[in-house]
Amino acid sequence: MSEPITTAVVGIGDISAVHLAAIAGNPRVRLVGVCDVDPERAAQASERLGVPGFTDHQSLFDALHPQVVHVTTPHHQHVPVALDAIEAGVHVLTEKPVGHTVAEAEELAERARTASVKVGLVLQNRYNPTSVAVRDALASGVLGPIAGGRASVWWSRPAPYYAAAPWRGRWSEGGGGALINQAIHTLDLLLWFVGDPVTVRGKAANLADDTIEVEDNATIVIDHEGGPRTVFFATNSHHTNAAVELEITGRDGTLTLAAGELRLTDADGTRMLATDAQADGARSYWGLGHALLIDDFYARLDDPEPFWLTPDVGLGALRVLRTTYAQSGLLPDGTPL
C-alpha cells in the first residue's frame, strides 16, 4: 500500500469542519497539521485532532512540508495563503470565493496556470446529482434553444452569525455579504448551466441588518452569450434556510430544481430526473458535495492535467457579484473590483 497523502488545514472556522471530516474519511489521506491565526483556536484544534498546531501558515509549510493544504480561512486570506503554498510546492484546495476581490483572484488564477502543483477551488454544488443531471439534460438538447432561467437563495443569517465571526460583515475581510459568502454557489451554477455573462445589471443592499457593513439582499439580471437572460435573487433576511430554487427554460421544455429535486417538463409531461441526498444536522442545506469534491481532488492528484475546478473557473461568478456591488455603490472608496 502506498504512503498516505499528507495534508494540512489552514483556517479553523466553521467550514473547516467539513474539510476535516472529509480528510478523516479518506483512507488515502493523513492530516499532519492545522493552523489558525487565533492561538487558542489553533491550540484547541491541535489537541482535538492530535496534530501540531500553528498560528502562521508559512511556519507550518516549513516545519511539516505537507503535500496538500486546504485553505479555509476568511476570504481576504485565501489568495495570500494559496500563493505561499504554491511557492512552497504544496498542492492547494481553497474554499470559495477564489479571492475577495477580482484583482486578487486574477493574480491567483494567473499564478496557478503555470504552477507545478494543483490548485483547486471548492465549488461543491457542481457535484450535486441534480447539477450533474442538469448538465446532462442540457448537453442532450432536450430543452432545445435556451430562452433563459432564474435562481434564488432564501437563507437566514441573523446578527449572532456575524457576531461570532465579525469578518463576515466587513468589506475589507469578507469582500461582501450574501452574494459572495452564501449565494455564490448558486450563481456559479447558473453561469455553468446557461453560459458566460455578456451584460450584468444588479442591485445589492443592506435592508435588514444594521450591525454589518455588507449586503444582505441582491437581485441581478444577466444576459448570457447567445441571448438567454437569467434573473438571480439572494437574501440572508429570510426567517430560515430554504432549499435553493433554480429553473431553466428552453423552446421544448423546462428544468426545475426545488426542494432538492430536479424535474423536466416537456411535451411528454413532467418527470423527475434526479434528487440530492440530504445531509444531517443544522447545516443540512449545505448538502454533501464537499466530501465528493475533496475525494475527487485527491483522486486526481497524480493526473498530469490541472484539477477541473481551477481558480479561473471561479472568476465568472466573482466578477458578476463584484460588478453588482460596484453598480450599487457599495464598494468603499478606493476598493478594487
Rank of each mutant, 00 (worst) to 15 (best):
E3P: 09
T6Q: 02
G13L: 10
G13C: 08
D14K: 12
I15T: 14
S16T: 11
A17E: 09
L20T: 02
R28M: 03
V34Y: 02
V34E: 01
V37M: 14
V37E: 05
E40L: 12
A43Q: 13
Q44M: 11
Q44W: 06
S46V: 09
R48A: 15
V51T: 11
P52T: 12
F54M: 08
T55E: 02
S59T: 13
A63R: 15
V68I: 14
V69K: 07
H70M: 13
V71C: 12
T72P: 00
T72I: 04
P74K: 11
P74G: 10
V79S: 09
P80A: 06
A82M: 06
A82K: 09
A85W: 01
A88F: 01
H91M: 13
T94C: 12
E95H: 10
K96G: 07
T101D: 05
V102K: 05
A105I: 09
R111I: 02
S116K: 15
V117L: 05
L121F: 11
V122P: 00
V122L: 12
V132K: 00
A133P: 04
A133S: 06
V134N: 00
A137L: 01
A139D: 14
G141V: 11
V142S: 07
G148I: 03
G149I: 07
G149K: 08
R150D: 00
W154A: 07
S156N: 15
P158A: 06
A159D: 14
Y162K: 13
W171Q: 04
W171D: 04
E173C: 03
N181V: 13
L189N: 04
D196S: 14
P197K: 05
T199M: 06
R201Q: 14
A204D: 03
A204E: 07
A204Q: 03
D210V: 07
D210Q: 15
T211H: 14
I212Q: 05
V214N: 10
N217S: 15
I222F: 02
I222G: 00
G227Q: 06
P228G: 05
T230L: 05
F232L: 10
N236C: 07
N236R: 09
S237R: 13
N241F: 04
A242P: 02
V244R: 04
V244I: 14
L246G: 00
E247N: 01
T249M: 10
D252K: 13
G253M: 07
G253P: 00
L255T: 01
L255P: 01
T256F: 05
T256D: 10
E261N: 05
L262E: 01
T265Q: 08
D268K: 08
D268S: 14
D268A: 15
G269S: 08
M272F: 01
A277R: 14
R283Q: 11
Y285T: 08
G287F: 00
L288I: 05
L293N: 00
R300P: 01
D302I: 05
D302A: 15
D303Y: 07
P306K: 04
W308L: 12
L309F: 12
L315C: 10
R319P: 09
V320Y: 04
R322N: 13
R322F: 04
T324Q: 02
Y325D: 10
Y325C: 08
Q327C: 12
G329H: 11
L330I: 10
D333P: 13
P336M: 07
L337T: 07
